[in-house]
Design a binder for these strands. Structure first.
Lengths: 228, 228
DNA sequence: ACATAACCGGTTATCGATAATCGTTGACCA
DNA sequence: TGGTCAACGATTATCGATAACCGGTTATGT
């Protein structure tokens, strides 16, 4: 096990998978030497992988005290929506024309999302949801916007969020709510597309808020996501 | 030299300073072993510092090939403004009330900015400009927004941008353009504050665009910034 | 009893050395 | 001449060992 190009990248992937799958939970310590021993490698690549994951915000380290899986609390989950709404509003506005060549692609995303939702498969649904949004972000052509959006690690967050949603509120058709965006792109209407993106993200935030309020003990989202 | 808490942080600061001051230019290689020898330390903390600076987008590395100072081109400089405008619009909207307790602070920033501008001191001006904006971003209370804004490394970018501006177009009073924001905060008008923030950032972008157009050979901003 | 100091196990931060990899140079041959 | 490839120097990626550091615990003095 562990054999490809750059060890630290493989370590990173493995640790990321541990986190996403729930094998390790928020707050858990990630001890460099232990991980190194478990993977049969030295401390250096592990250390490097952990630092990378700090930049991704999956891990937090305190000097001389070590790394832990970052705890994503309800406040943080909710705080992301206004930021996404702003960024995606901009992306929608910029991308309304250039995204037209991706209309088929976008519709495939919505379709797959719908199916995954019916199958209660949060991971797959998150994947297509994120692909939909990323397609539009990238069509904006603004590389800073793209990098900024990517830095929010929306894929992972969406996954844990949808896991919760599907578990606790399986009657909301999220996939279908992407159609207004598709329509605005088809019409090439920049303002409408931006507005649709904003509204879509804000709506999603509202739904999550309700989920939280109806299910107060769910404060540790990543931890509970392992059920999916 | 080099003596505080964490070596890699000191290395990072030193390298950052080398870049900001123009002692090393975009495209220059940053050889781990050479830097280590020059600073009288081992390769590890240098390596770590470089990886951190990749996350900050000041450095780029290719596996097995090493690190170079990242080239920031005109396109990238211009692309940041729409993103900033979106984020700061949001921040202004959220912060109009809570920033009221920082009104004095904000006015100090503008004052210092004005003085630095008169002294043609781009570094100091950037410092106070960024402090002004950061104060409002932080008053928004949204930690994701704060982190996202920080990830744009606006301080360093503003410095190189202002260096150019001061060199090439010293007749524009940028500092004074912060007053509409201060006024909106004083009035506690959320919508106006958001709008003022957006307009301010967009105006700055416009000014920079003009600077670029009037000075076509300036495409390598970091490189030329060493004049400041 | 209580505060403080010395100690200890566990872990991180740093070191110096080595293996792996890259780009280049120059020999060799068709 | 032109092209392939082996060897080289430079540099990165990884290693194993050690020093520095943290938090908790026990020993010590008042």
């Amino acid at each position: 096990m562990i054999q490809r190009v750059v060890l630290s990248d493989q370590v990173k992937e493995e640790l990321l998978d541990d986190i996403m799958s729930g094998r390790v939970k928020p707050g858990d310590r990630l001890v460099e030497s232990q991980i190194a021993k478990r993977m049969g490698i030295s401390q250096s690549p592990v250390r490097e992988a952990l630092r990378d994951m700090v930049a991704m915000r999956f891990v937090e380290v305190q000097p001389h005290k070590g790394a832990r899986v970052r705890r994503i609390d309800q406040r943080e989950v909710m705080e992301i929506y206004p930021v996404r709404a702003s960024l995606e509003h901009l992306a929608g506005t910029l991308a309304a024309s250039s995204a037209q060549k991706h209309l088929d692609e976008l519709e495939v995303c919505v379709d797959r999302m719908t199916k995954a939702f019916e199958a209660k498969d949060a991971r797959t649904m998150a994947k297509w949801d994120v692909k939909f949004h990323r397609t539009i972000i990238e069509a904006s052509g603004n590389s800073i916007l793209i990098e900024t959006w990517n830095s929010l690690m929306i894929e992972a967050r969406t996954f844990v969020t949808l896991s919760n949603l599907i578990t606790h509120k399986s009657d909301i058709d999220l996939a279908g709510r992407h159609y207004p965006i598709v329509d605005a792109i088809r019409a090439g209407d920049h303002a409408a597309c931006g507005a649709a993106m904003r509204q879509h993200v804000e709506e999603f935030g509202e739904v999550m808020k309700v989920v939280f309020e109806n299910d107060a003990e769910v404060t540790d989202m990543v931890g509970t996501s392992s059920a999916a």
